[in-house]
């Protein structure tokens, strides 16, 4: 009985936490003023928000006396793919020159996405 109450309260906390993180992620997407800065809010907060909501679903099932594990699958998938999408979007921002130019790694090297020096890429047409 007590365990059930604890699980229900944990569900409520996870739901509110997930709601907060989700909305902070989207608010950051709207508020921040540089494409690279915008990348930070959704990749972390939104992933964490959905993670909390999935945890809430699992806790709710547990409170009802059932064990549900397949939410873990979605969580793992989201946490594995979030860095990859973030990496791709960062490369789009670098190539589209919508953010500050990154510094060169060292005098004799270029970044992996730049097959040529950045100076040699023509400016994108507006």
């Amino acid at each position: 009985m007590i365990l059930q109450a604890i699980l229900e309260w944990a569900t409520v906390i996870a739901l509110l936490l997930g709601a907060m993180f989700t909305i902070v992620g989207s608010y950051g997407l709207l508020k921040l003023d540089d494409p690279m800065k915008r990348l930070h809010a959704p990749t972390k907060a939104a992933t964490m928000g959905v993670g909390s909501l999935l945890a809430a679903a699992m806790l709710h099932e547990a409170a009802a006396g059932e064990v549900s594990v397949n939410e873990i699958l979605i969580m793992v998938f989201l946490f594995l793919t979030a860095p990859i999408s973030a990496n791709f979007i960062a490369k789009v921002a670098i190539h589209g020159r919508t953010c500050d130019r990154p510094p060169a790694p060292s005098p004799d090297e270029v970044w992996g996405t730049n097959d040529v020096e950045l100076e040699d890429i023509p400016e994108p047409k507006a």
């Binding site: 690279m36 800065k37 860095p83 990496n87 090297e109 970044w111 992996g112 996405t113």
Partner: peptide, 27 residues
């Protein structure tokens, strides 16, 4: 690189051609 993207205010953006440097953006 995955760890850096998921932790405090940093996103890993690119790797140098030889793989000896990592480009990271910090909020």
């Amino acid at each position: 690189a995955g760890t850096i993207t998921l932790t405090p205010g940093t996103v890993s953006a690119d790797l140098s051609q030889s793989g000896r440097y990592l480009l990271v953006h910090a909020l």
